[in-house]
Design a protein around this nucleic acid. Structure first.
Lengths: 257, 257
DNA sequence: GACAAATGTGCGTATTGCGCACACAATATC
DNA sequence: GATATTGTGTGCGCAATACGCACATTTGTC
């Protein structure tokens, strides 16, 4: 017999949120049947959730497919505006990105994924990898992810790792948990995480900690093509990231989480 | 007697969404009592909505205040990723922002407000005005807003205007509806909207249409300080915006709405 | 045309959520 | 410190809401 429901929680609202969350970067458009499967809900329940979101403007319909609309950006805008990301965070990222001539990204851990919170806009840089604020990246094979794991206690980091999907993105992707843990430990010790082509082929990723307690840690990261990456250049990027982290702390970004 | 409810809509879910939407840039943090007032709901109803959002991770609690979390960015990320904003839109905005040496913004109309969808901000530019993707701007006194109104039929534009708040942001803000309508008509005729210090003092705004049917039109805009803005420079910005719009159409941005 | 997959909807059921009221807590003001 | 105001937590009766199932229909694919 299921426990009596928590009277503080609206189960219908929670089911509806699950329908909204089913739409992500991997599942951009879904039929009702797919939506029911993905949420584990009865088709009629999922349908009511989808029709409510349709009426509210968060979904639109293309034939049989439901498609997420830009209205979700308005929700995100509330958070970004409230925390003055445009005035405090973006200029710092842009400034350092300009100096380093690379993109810079601010990220946080979201369960066992990396969530990008903000990203510099760079005029003359290498080709964009297509990520934006709100993008979700893997935890295990990115420098951002490793740095976020380095921000939590070792045994908790191991727990998180054990419950995270370990997908080999490239031939270089580490696949043994002890190897990944060793890299996380190294990031914890040095304050820097560097990955070589483990998520995107031929791309070196860098990340350092901005601050914040374990589960709510913020990190900044950058990336550069491996080819033509000298030790001097690498050290320069690391130093700039650490300066960027200091400037972000100064700007008060840690109070946003 | 109220009409029987639409069986396709979950009223509890809709109420919950209204609680989530109550958190915006102007109301970053709210007590339960404030939330009930803002949503017009009974305090117990608003409380259940807030507690459900708390459990789902969209709100956190600071004393008596509920605060929006970054989790809403994940929802936005689904839309941005699905429409490849990072790969198709951002590079175009960045390219033209670099060439023009101004910020560029992509926007859509959201009821009687302007919603920013994407933006390229400049490394060495005038002080950032603090807006980001998801930010909401007024419709009546921005070049983006005027251009969005120009995209709909004149009588519909007038209806929207009549139902929009007419706040005087600066001494230069037009306040007579016929004057604003005339500016909208001019934007419709010329394909460009230019405003002088009506929303931010001393700032000239430019906007042009990217495309899309009336209610779903997309526009791009830019801004520059009025001081030191020559006719040549003005014309240059307008031409670049129009080229940017053409490149965005080419990149397929219109299918995102 | 056959088959699979998806959809719309009616309906019985009971659970869920609503809203009110009461008591208590926290904060603000004097 | 007292008082007033505002905010909060929660129990509870009630009825309406939402669930989930089943059936018929539609759409898509081969």
């Amino acid at each position: 017999m299921p426990p009596p429901q928590d009277r503080n929680i609206s189960a219908s609202f929670a089911k509806g949120l699950a329908v909204l969350e089913a739409f992500d970067g991997d599942a951009a458009r879904m039929t009702l049947a797919e939506l029911a499967r993905r949420t584990g809900q009865d088709r009629a329940t999922a349908r009511r959730g989808a029709m409510t979101l349709l009426a509210a403007g968060y979904l639109r319909q293309e034939g049989r497919d439901f498609v997420l609309t830009h209205k979700v950006l308005g929700l995100a805008g509330g958070f970004l505006q409230a925390n003055q990301f445009g005035r405090l965070v973006q200029p710092v990222l842009n400034h350092h990105a300009g100096q380093m001539q690379t993109e810079i990204t601010l990220a946080v851990r979201d369960n066992n994924r990396v969530m990008l919170l903000a990203q510099s806009t760079l005029v003359h840089g290498p080709v964009s990898y297509g990520f934006t604020a709100g993008s979700s990246l893997p935890l295990l094979h990115t420098s951002l992810g490793r740095m976020l794991l380095a921000a939590v206690e070792p045994d908790e980091a191991e727990q998180i790792l054990r419950h995270s999907p370990c997908v080999r993105h490239t031939a270089q992707s580490l696949s043994h948990l002890p190897d990944i843990l060793a890299e996380v430990d190294r990031a914890r010790d040095t304050g820097l995480s560097i990955t070589n082509g483990e998520f995107e082929p031929g791309i070196t990723g860098f990340a350092t900690l901005v601050g914040g307690p374990g589960a709510k840690a913020l990190v900044v990261g950058s990336s550069a093509p491996e080819a033509g990456l000298s030790k001097t250049r690498s050290a320069q990027i690391c130093a700039s990231l650490q300066q960027c982290a200091a400037d972000l702390r100064q700007a008060g970004v840690l109070s946003a989480i």
